[in-house]
Design a protein around this nucleic acid. Structure first.
Lengths: 231, 231
DNA sequence: CGCCAATCGACTGTCGACAATCGACTGATG
DNA sequence: CATCAGTCGATTGTCGACAGTCGATTGGCG
């Protein structure tokens, strides 16, 4: 009966589970930049052996959330505003400009309904100041479109940069001003998808992502890390 | 005495070693798209246990070269011309536009000399039709600049996309026309770096990367993979 | 007192064995 | 003859133990 619920979690491997937990801990700031990650310690805390944990660390490293030094362990990385603004966000635009157009003919009624639902979630979250849920719905919206675009590498790249962008906005970015702008803009995106006119869609996509950056303009710190002991 | 030579290779972990071998095999086409990767088999061939091999597979997966399905193994992925052209190369431009400017004040005499040496290598390779070495020098040139830019995430992203771009040009792209264009263009890049005028540099960077794509314009096949058994 | 080599503790890197899962095959059953 | 539960071989997921490496500490020596 509750088979479905039971399957939900154990279906994912311990490795995936560990990745999600650590990613959440890092993007939320619970594990701050510079924090050292010790395998045996983490494995004990998470109730696994080191094998899946190490694979998880490799994945996080490829996502740019951590960095490891041979025989000397891993540490949590930070992201500078400069790199978010000039590297990660422009990459996001590139991805989405491509993916949204590809997704256009592939979105069915259910997808559009789900997107509309996510916009509603954003509205509620924005009104109630639930920053967490607002960001989650935001990401879910974009990810659904990219998944539907069915472009393998596009999705792979999105998953690679998305955690860092998220980490930046949750940890490092100055809180931005108008939460209601988020659902409003996504409604525009959705409308453009429903209407299905490509040029309009592209215009809205670019506009949308830039907005994230026009608000917090402070020329923040350039927090590059140095290895604990550069050899 | 030959300590240095002996240290050179064993210094890298088996995992890194395995990554390099598999990456080379995949980008060269020796392991073609669709090829199934079986852990015990590879481990035996490479003379390691499965632990480092699995970590290597995780890394290759994050680089978009392979894809894995729970309990059913990994397979080699292909890249469509469309994704290279509209996703990977635009991302490369984004990265390099940022990194070249950052590297500008950080390049010392040795770096510039090394870059010049690489251009010379390209010239020789181009004249002799040594496609392999031409591509290697090309990549080494760009990687050196990005390393010197000292932008963690920029370098990380470069390493993530570079193998796929390389795989595309080695495996899937129609052979392009004029090999001598490669050293010539890199000489231009280098000259712009030496001169140190930012706007010129940016112009040359964009021009450079687009060239790769203007040659083989065939609107090639869209070789997306499907999972062996989509569940 | 300052310097260098041996030692030590805390980790990471690697291995071989065992458990869990998948898809194909098999054979009973209507 | 088609269908479906049960079984089996192949392969991945996980574990605990051992080996290797690094940086810090210690202790001898000039």
């Amino acid at each position: 009966m509750n088979e479905l619920l039971v399957r939900q979690v154990p279906t994912q491997s311990r490795r995936e589970h560990v990745v999600e937990i650590l990613r959440e801990a890092i993007t939320s700031g619970q594990l701050p930049p510079g924090h050292r990650l010790i395998e045996v310690e983490l494995a004990k805390q998470l109730g696994t052996s080191r094998a899946p944990l190490r694979e998880a660390l490799r994945q996080l490293e490829q996502e740019g959330l951590t960095r490891s030094y041979p025989y000397r362990g891993s540490e949590v990385l930070g992201v500078s505003q400069e790199e978010v603004e000039h590297v990660l966000v422009p990459i996001r635009i590139t991805l989405e400009r491509f993916a949204f157009v590809k997704a256009l003919p592939r979105l069915n009624g259910d997808d559009l309904a789900e997107l509309q639902r996510l916009v509603t979630v954003m509205e509620t979250a924005a009104r109630e100041g639930a920053t967490e849920e607002l960001a989650d719905a935001d990401i879910a919206f974009h990810e659904l479109v990219i998944v539907r675009s069915d472009q393998t590498h596009c999705l792979q790249m999105w998953r690679t940069i998305q955690p860092r962008v998220r980490a930046y906005f949750r940890r490092d970015a100055p809180a931005h001003d108008d939460p209601m702008a988020v659902p409003r803009q996504h409604q525009e995106l959705l409308d453009a998808l429903v209407a299905g006119r490509e040029p309009d869609l592209l215009r809205v996509v670019e506009q949308h992502i830039h907005t994230h950056l026009d608000a917090p303009r402070l020329d923040g710190p350039d927090d590059q890390q140095n290895p604990p002991d550069a050899r």
